[in-house]
Write a protein that binds this DNA or RNA. Structure first.
Lengths: 253, 253
DNA sequence: TGTAAACGGATTTTCGAAACTTTTGGAAAT
DNA sequence: ATTTCCAAAAGTTTCGAAAATCCGTTTACA
């Protein structure tokens, strides 16, 4: 199979910046997207719990908006995989399961390493600066524990995402970045549960990761992030009570 | 970066069937999804052309539906990457570019081979039967040429997708399948353009693919599909007039 | 002549009421 | 006691009108 496009993105044109891959809707400022963003955050943080029914009446009150706008936002969440719907019987929060977490984590390993490798190869000074800065902000906040207020947890989540985003920011494949981001969000739901139930405490993997990336050590950095992802899955599997049971529950239905 | 991911999904749990990954919205039967399906098809077939402005007035007439419903469908298309929007100034069909096609094709190679390999390893009799059947239907129709009526082109597109879907149907990773499907659709837009302008004619790659898959020859089948994808990109790059120029046009804006 | 403010038509965005569907609960029949 | 049916209630889906916004053009002013 002729090795036409062997190196990832090698055949691509220089300016890949503004291109076709799906829009990151979060950047919009209209009211619809406000609601969407809030709802997404609430699902990710399990304020809206897995399998929970999403009734228009309640949501309308909660987010102070109309049915139409809500519907649009919900529809969006469905295509992101954070909600489900069946015609005629409304929406609910997407379920979680260990099988799902394993599946998405496997893909994540590929996408995170792929994007990270490319980002490191094309990193700029500004990229390095943002990594330093976002790590600093992340490190300033201790990882939240079960009894921390929600606002603290939210803030930590935001900084955590910003740090990981900054690492891959200079990757030149918009599609890889897009899917990476979607899966990263998905993983946040499980990550959240893990933190809440966490018995064991993990050492600061982010620092190692930061240094490997800044040293432009592709292999080391990719290895670290791979381990980072896999460890989280294993921790969740062993420490989150609901996760393994879910499967049995689902079989009955 | 270490070849950790050698056996895909090896860590996963047996029953991955009904799980969490995003819903294939096309299966719904409500009116909203009808519109969505139709619009998606029209974008994929370039009836609605890249960069074209999507005004509510026209669309309402074309699809015979209300503003609200349209909005929901459009919103969906944005998150699939088939349309774009900027708050306050409506929607337009997503642009196309060679860079985008290259990018998405690279990811496709990975996702198609990953899903195909797993599907072959877990293929059943029913899976084989569906492959035989969908290939038969695809083969019955000659690949459309520029002057064929749209309905013929549509039908061929449908059978083409069904064939490729059937190949990977028994893959046990819902997330991989989901992203594969999204990228497959994206590629259809470019594929379409290629067929319209095609000077050269390609031999029947689908037959080889079918036989390799039915023979359960993972390496051969993956090699074939990889070549299938890469060849299409190269053909598009050399034979579709608009594609390379697009970049220049975009730079001015 | 060039720049800025103001206007008007076109378009998008938001909203809640009306139509429709599913679910619930209770009464009648098996 | 269980099933079947019906009607009321709860919830969802669709719609088009009203409000907000944008864009091109004209008008006012330096």
């Amino acid at each position: 199979m002729g090795k036409v496009l062997t190196m990832p993105f090698e055949g691509s044109i220089e300016n890949l910046a503004a291109t076709t891959a799906p829009q990151d809707v979060s950047l919009e400022d209209a009211a619809t997207f406000d609601v969407l963003r809030k709802m997404r955050e609430d699902i990710l943080c399990c304020v809206l719990k897995p399998d929970q029914k999403l009734r228009f009446g309640e949501l309308r009150q909660r987010y102070g908006t109309s049915v139409g706008t809500l519907r649009e936002a919900l529809s969006h969440l469905v295509s992101e995989g954070l909600a489900r719907t069946e015609a005629g019987r409304g929406f609910q929060v997407a379920p979680i399961s260990l099988a799902d977490f394993l599946d998405l984590s496997e893909l994540r390993v590929y996408l995170e390493t792929r994007t990270l490798a490319d980002a490191i190869r094309h990193g700029t000074d500004a990229w390095e600066a943002e990594i330093v800065s976002s790590y600093f902000l992340l490190n300033k906040l201790a990882p939240p524990r079960q009894d921390d207020p929600v606002s603290v947890k939210r803030e930590w989540g935001k900084r955590h995402k910003r740090f990981h985003d900054s690492l891959v920011a200079t990757c030149r494949s918009p599609w890889s970045l897009h899917f990476r981001s979607e899966l990263f969000d998905q993983a946040r739901r499980y990550h959240w549960l893990t933190m809440i139930h966490a018995r064991s405490r993990r050492r600061n993997e982010h620092l190692d990761l930061r240094d490997a990336v800044l040293a432009r050590d592709v292999d080391l950095a990719c290895g670290l992030i791979e381990k980072h992802i896999r460890t989280t899955v294993q921790q969740a599997a062993s420490e989150v009570p609901g996760l393994t049971l879910d499967m049995a529950k689902r079989k009955k239905a």
